[in-house]
Simulated scan of single mutants.
Amino acid sequence: MAHETLINKLGQQFGERLPSSLQTARSELEGTLKGLLRDALSRMDLLTRDEFDVQQTLLARTRNKVDTLETQLRALEAQLTAIEKK
């Protein structure tokens, strides 16, 4: 619902900045703008900050695991090379 809060805030700010001659159409224009914003945001693949932080943590853990596995692989390759040279 963070998107809805943003949409409402932008719609309100838009309405407040309308020239006085358009104030009578304020609610209609705000509604139209909110609809356009909702459509645009729904087409985007957006994450919340919490979802982003979770993914960032998972990526860091995965990177750590890959680094560990690469180190183990290098050690095993070195052992295999040493055995083959004997």
Results as ranks from 00 to 15, higher is better:
22 L>R: 00
75 A>V: 15
18 L>M: 04
26 R>E: 04
21 S>F: 14
27 S>N: 11
27 S>K: 04
60 A>G: 04
55 Q>R: 14
28 E>C: 01
80 L>H: 05
30 E>F: 01
9 K>W: 09
22 L>G: 01
30 E>R: 03
39 D>F: 04
22 L>Q: 11
79 Q>V: 05
57 T>E: 05
64 N>W: 10
70 E>Q: 11
31 G>Q: 03
27 S>I: 10
6 L>I: 05
35 G>N: 02
35 G>H: 01
15 G>E: 03
78 A>W: 14
75 A>L: 11
52 F>H: 10
68 T>E: 15
59 L>F: 15
12 Q>Y: 09
73 L>Y: 05
64 N>Q: 15
25 A>G: 08
70 E>T: 11
27 S>V: 00
43 R>D: 03
70 E>A: 06
41 L>I: 05
33 L>S: 00
23 Q>A: 07
42 S>L: 01
14 F>C: 03
10 L>P: 03
50 D>G: 07
35 G>W: 07
39 D>C: 04
54 V>C: 08
11 G>M: 01
3 H>D: 14
58 L>Y: 13
6 L>A: 06
43 R>G: 02
27 S>M: 07
58 L>P: 09
51 E>G: 03
62 T>H: 14
32 T>R: 11
8 N>W: 09
39 D>V: 06
37 L>T: 01
43 R>P: 00
84 E>R: 08
31 G>E: 00
27 S>A: 10
25 A>Q: 12
34 K>G: 02
80 L>R: 09
77 E>I: 03
57 T>C: 13
84 E>F: 09
79 Q>D: 15
8 N>Q: 15
60 A>K: 07
6 L>M: 06
39 D>Y: 10
15 G>C: 06
40 A>H: 07
17 R>M: 12
17 R>P: 02
46 L>G: 07
58 L>V: 09
84 E>T: 05
63 R>N: 14
62 T>V: 09
81 T>F: 14
2 A>E: 11
73 L>N: 13
55 Q>V: 02
14 F>W: 03
74 R>L: 08
11 G>N: 06
12 Q>L: 10
23 Q>K: 15
46 L>K: 04
47 L>C: 06
13 Q>F: 09
38 R>L: 02
69 L>Y: 04
66 V>W: 07
54 V>I: 14
71 T>H: 08
50 D>T: 13
